[in-house]
Design a protein around this nucleic acid. Structure first.
Lengths: 122, 122
DNA sequence: GCTTGACTTAGAGTTGACTCTAAGTTGTAG
DNA sequence: CTACAACTTAGAGTCAACTCTAAGTCAAGC
């Protein structure tokens, strides 16, 4: 598929896709006869994985390191696993923290709702 | 307390504290005889709340809007409550999404751990 | 055969949230 | 009474992650 189609499916702008290629997140993208990028399922799966890492707070630099290891082949699978494990642990902590924040927010909202009730009945 | 002490307690750098004052997140901060900022429990509670909103992904611009409403007094409490409710809902969605991502990450880790096991036994 | 619109590139500009610099003032310790 | 650390300000610089611009190429429809 061309960059437009790929952009629609991945929900990344063509700009962002080229940017990801420029910084090395996307590599060895095929080109058609007129020099336009040609994407396949392979890129789709990889980009979805990049998005997962990014959306859970991993910086692009770290994702880049993962991409480097990935390119080196199977000998780096243990390293990659360790990266993911460390990241998963951080994510678990982050979720726990957010759940705590959420509870505090709900308490504040409860406080407001009582306040507003008082105003209405005044 | 002075800015140094306030910085230690809030875990924000003096730079950041001044920045927050400059953009209007912190207002009406008292000064001592020599013109230095003087913080109290009131600022502490407010800054902790700011941090909660920020740490759950609310942009400073939105927190600023909240600060504006807060300054207008009790008549805006319903609006503020609605802001918090909307934010809490988004946070709940975000947590759910992150939990989904976490599960997918764990599946990938599981996949790697099998791969690594194969390599070790090879 | 010419316009239109999608593609290409290198590189500049933007945004959010800081973070630092320079130049100056003040309060305390030696 | 002087050195020194902490404070003050306005404004410049940084960083991540885009996002856009300019200048150019190319295939398809009229």
């Amino acid at each position: 598929m061309n960059i437009q189609k790929f952009s629609e499916i991945t929900n990344l702008s063509p700009h962002t896709i080229r940017y990801y290629e420029k910084i090395g997140l996307l590599r060895n993208i095929a080109r058609n006869a007129s020099g336009h990028r040609w994407f396949t399922e392979k890129e789709l799966a990889w980009v979805e994985f990049i998005k997962r890492l990014k959306d859970t707070g991993m910086p692009l630099d770290d994702i880049l390191k993962y991409a480097d290891l990935r390119e080196e082949g199977d000998s780096t699978s243990e390293q990659r696993m360790q990266m993911l494990q460390a990241h998963a642990m951080k994510l678990e902590e982050k979720i726990a923290e957010e759940q705590f924040h959420l509870q505090k927010l709900k308490e504040k909202i409860e406080h407001y709702s009582k306040l507003v009730e008082l105003e209405v009945n005044a």
